[in-house]
Structure formats: C-alpha cells, structure tokens
Write a protein that binds this DNA or RNA. Structure first.
Lengths: 343, 343
DNA sequence: TTGTACGCGTTATCAT
DNA sequence: ATGATAACGCGTACAA
C-alpha cells in the first residue's frame, strides 16, 4: 500500500554536521571546486586543493553519502537480510556469510528478524524497499511471493535462501532437504531401526515439508510406516523438547528420532536427558558442540549459503546476469555416534 | 580523514522507481498535492485524494525515504552495531536484543563484524558516520577511543557494550567481569581446589583483563598462586582447545579450569574430551547446551545487554538525556556439575 | 484547497 | 582551472 502511516522522526537541529558548502566557504572557493578537491578529481590547482582539504579537516567535514547518492542517482550498497531470528545460530551463520561476501563489494548489511511472522516479514520488506536497499536476501516465512515481484520491478533483486520463492522468478539458494532427509533416514534404517520418529518445524515452511517428505518417502520405500511417530510444528527448542517428550513417552515409542533442524535436535536432547532414554538420534543441521556430544547430523554450511546468496544478490544488482539462478547445496552425513545406536 | 577514496557504485538506469512527480503528473495534480494526499495530510479534496492514490497504485509508487529525510533534515532510524563476529552466539544474542528494542522505535539495525581488528573497526565506524546512522553501538577492539569523540560531535551517540570506552565520555553497558570472575574462582576454591587454571581471550581486551584480574586477586586473597596455570590470547574455539590442551598436559596440571568466555569454555571441553580428563570447569558466559552438558557457568544475559544498549542509544539520540550513563549488569553463577567436581 | 518557490547536501553540465 | 546553475526526490513556507 502506498498509504502507509508516515513515519515522522523527531527533528534534529540542523548544522551539527558540517556541509560541503561550509567547507567551500571556509576555504574561499566555490562549491564545485570543494567537491572536486575532496573527490580527488582533476582540474584543481594545488593551492586550492590544499586549502579545501585543510578546511575540511578543520571543520571535521564528512561526506553525506545519502545526499551524494541521491545526487548521483545511484543506490547504496546496503543489502537487507531478513531471517526468522538473528540469534538462531543457523541464521547468524547465514548473516556472517552474507557479510563476508558483501565486504569485498564494500557493501553493508541490514538485518531484521521476522519471528517467522508473515505480516512482519511483509512489513520488513516494505521497509527495506522504501529505504532503497540494493537487494533483499530473504528467508521467507510466506507461502506465496507474488507480491514480491513488485520489489523486483523496482530493480531490487530478491534472493531466497533456505526456502524458495513461490509464484515468482527469483534467485534462490537452498539445501537439498529431501536428499538430506533421505540420507538420514536410510542411515537409521541401515542401523536396524524400523520405528523411526520425526519431529519437524512449522509445517508451513517448505524446508520442513521437504524434510518431512524425504522422511515419508524413505520410510515407505523401506516398507515402514511413516505415520506412527511424527510430531510437527515444533518451532522452538522448548516446543521441540515437549514434542520429543511426548514422542518418547507414547505407546511404543520409536527407537530412533530424526530431528528436523538444529533447534529440534537440541530440544530432543533435552527431552532424552530428562527421560534418561537414549534412542538413536540424527539431526538436520550441524550445531556447535554437536561433535563433542557425538550427535550424528546431516550437515551443510549456512555460512556458505550466505556467501552464495550474497554473490547472487550482487551479481543481480550489478546486472551481470539475467534470469533466475537456483543453487542447491548438498548435505553431508556426519556419523558421530548418536545415529549409530542400535534399536 | 576527509579524503577517503570515494566510493563510486555502478550507475543504475534512472526511472526504475517511480517518483512523486510522476505520480502527480499521472494524477493531473501538483507535486505538493500528491505529497499531501500520500502522506495523509489534511486539505486535499476527496476527488484528488483518490486520483492520487490510484495513480500511486498504478505506478507502484513507493516513497523514497532517503530523499524524504534529506528534505526534512532528519536522520534515519538506522543504528549500527559493530561486534567482533556476528556468528558468535554472544554477539548474535546481543544483536537480537538491540533489534528487539529498536523495533519499538521503528528503527533498523545495520551490523558489521570487525573481526576484532582495530583498523577494520575504525573503517566501519567511519562508514557508519558517512551514512549518517542515528547511533553506533560498539563492542570495541580498540584500546583508545578519543577519535570517537569526533563521531559524537556529529550528533551520533556512541554506546560501548561489553567493553567501556577509553578516553571518551560515552554510554556503556558492561558486565561485572571482575565480580563474576571472583564468584567463579571462589566457587572453585570453596570446592577444595588450590590449583586453578585460567584461560583467557586476547589480553588487550578489557573484558578479558578484568576477568583475569578477578582471577588473580581472588587467588591471591586465598593465598594461592595465580601464575602457575594461565593461558591467554585464546581468541577462537580452536585456540582455546590448544591452550587447554597445553594447560592440562603441563607439569602439575590444575585440578580446575576457569574459562574466560564461551568460546574458551567450548574449546576447553574439546580438549578435556580429547585427553579424557575431567578437571572442574567453570566458564564465563552461558551457552546453549550448557545446561544439558552440566557446565557450571557465570551467566549473564547478552540479549538484555543489547536491549539496554539500544535503549541508551535511543535516549541519547532523541536527546532525552545528557551526560554519559554506565550500566553494569550483574552475573549469576549457575552450578550445574562441572564446577562442583572435587580436586 | 491548491500550487509556487525554495531548500536539503551533493553532483553534473556547461559556460567562462 | 573554476564557478554559476540545474538537477536528484522530497518537504516546508507562503501565496494564491
């Protein structure tokens, strides 16, 4: 909507930051000459050059990039990253990757958390658009992104991470969720398990759905029942712990658990600890201490995801590429013990 | 320096984003009328009101906040946060706190990692200044901040987090490092330990120094030697693991370890695991899975630190307060087992 | 109610 | 080499 409640920041006294005009006056030259001198352009006499530089130093002049870019009609190098929660290690690793790649491009990163709330995500995207960020990297919680075409048509590329865009042609970087799931479940089956539980995140998230589907199809392929021990919608460590608890205390609890992401793995560990039971456990996403704890995981690199996404965003915004690119990152099973426990 | 290499982003074709003027023309009204209509101001005939709104919708008009703010002479609600590494859970929790508080203020967060490199930190601050961010929240790696006065004099408040500003009068939010250290070491001493090792981060970091000092003074107060088992400069999990390894394999290894931060605690755990030894262990900073692993820690809340810092930044930038405020957050010892092991 | 003229801080154009 | 002058996209002051 174009009629958003207008934001009216408090007015700050003008003149705290010295302007180019002040520098010019102080140096006794014209505005343009000062500009030239400071920008290191040619055609400035050494005399005035130093006068301007001195004046700038004295006044503590700093270029106002905002105005500069407005005048030049270029956009900033600011890229927006929207994730569910920046404190989630997966997302913060993602942010790190994005930042690393942005650095080489002299870019800057603005982050915001949607808390996985669709409305908030929409608001954040809108916010970034009005701020004219250069690109938006998005771990989306929406199930439809047609509205996001609007963003693209403004020349702001959108890169979807972890979850692809729906109803839109845009770059994306995702994990091979289905494949990773398959690997995990096959690993457990190979270990002799026939009763394997699944605990998933919010089922509206495509990544969760894909992982779940991988679970289901692998179970089915092995002639196992994929409906006996499933809990979904666990979107926090707490919720995951409760789900795991319920799973492990149900009639005929599974002998193995496949945890849909790092939060869930940790929640499951807590529940296992409370109940003092040790089913086999394989988690999606690696996590710190996972090696120490001997937790078998389907690993991938969120930092690499971030880097890739940032690269795509930069390429797109610099128009070095047309059309949408999709990158799927493979997973690796890291057998560390918890996934090798027998039924 | 005022003569920085000027950044010259690639020029983007103009006109991708519709302007207010285009909307006005499309609606057949003057620029100002369009502005009024879109901003919901009074004194616009319903007729033109809808004409403008329709035009805006058709053209997909979005306010250019940058230009708007330039015109109004106000600064954005963007706050910059500089930490060592956004992927470090301590820093990402900090970022989360900042973002939470900023949200209520309709603010936005730009993050950047200094990698604990002074030069990079300086460059990042400069970058934020030229972008006219509203405030800077800083986990500084510098040992002197006189140069930062410059930032303040531009009306950009600087809030120091985790490490206070030196040579500058500025807000700060820190942890009671010395007190936390004391608590930790006293706890170990009370447990019967007389040989307690310390593993610290880069010793140029004030937080590390304070923690180390707390260690030293508590040891001395108990008549123990605080020089027999000290390793400092461990700035990564890897480095900490090596330090712990070396500590635990030295002549007369300590029976207890006090780890200076969360990275070091984890590194120590790895080393203990490798060596299959179990000295008592108390770590500074809580960390995920710390409870599950039964690690005794000196805990505090990085999220709360972030929130507090953001509040201070907002207060300062809205000039609702003058003078510098210092907040010291207390720590809590969480006894979970590892710190209660006997010598 | 509506529009004009001007300004925000900077850069670009084009004379001089 | 230098400097008026006009942009950039928008908002304010003041007329009309």
């Amino acid at each position: 909507m174009a009629t958003e409640t207008p934001e009216r920041p408090a007015v700050r006294p003008r003149g705290v930051a010295p302007t180019l005009a002040q520098v010019a006056q102080h140096a006794g030259v014209s505005l343009k000459t000062a500009s030239r001198a400071l920008n290191g352009e040619a055609h400035v006499s050494p005399d005035k050059q130093t006068r301007v530089l001195d004046a700038a130093r004295e006044l503590g002049y700093q270029l106002n990039r905002t105005a500069s870019m407005l005048a030049r009609g270029v956009d900033s190098h600011v890229v927006g990253l929207i994730t569910g929660d920046i404190a989630n290690p997966f997302y913060s690793a993602l942010a790190k990757g994005v930042e690393q790649e942005l650095r080489a491009w002299d870019g800057q990163l603005t982050v915001a958390s949607s808390d996985e709330e669709p409305d908030r995500e929409r608001a954040l995207v809108h916010e970034l658009v009005t701020r004219h960020v250069r690109a938006v990297i998005l771990v989306s919680t929406l199930d439809d992104h047609q509205a996001m075409r609007d963003v693209q048509s403004r020349g702001i590329p959108v890169v979807f991470v972890d979850r692809v865009g729906v109803g839109i042609e845009a770059d994306s970087v995702v994990i091979d969720n289905r494949g990773g799931s398959r690997t995990a479940v096959e690993h457990l089956i190979a270990g002799g398990h026939t009763s394997i539980g699944f605990i998933g995140d919010l089922s509206r998230l495509p990544s969760d759905r894909e992982r779940f589907e991988g679970y289901v199809e692998t179970m089915r392929a092995a002639g196992l029942d994929p409906t006996r021990a499933v809990r979904r919608g666990a979107h926090s460590v707490q919720a995951a712990a409760e789900a795991a608890h319920s799973l492990l205390t149900q009639d005929q609890p599974p002998t193995a658990i496949f945890a849909g992401n790092n939060r869930i793995t940790i929640g499951s560990l807590q529940a296992m600890n409370e109940l003092s039971v040790e089913p086999a456990l394989v988690g999606f996403d690696d996590f710190e201490l996972g090696d120490l704890l001997g937790i078998t995981v389907v690993a991938h690199s969120p930092v690499e995801m971030g880097r890739t996404a940032a690269r795509l965003a930069i390429e797109a915004t610099e128009r070095r590429r047309t059309g949408a690119t999709s990158v799927t990152l493979e997973t690796t099973l890291l057998a560390r013990g918890s996934g090798e426990r027998r039924p």
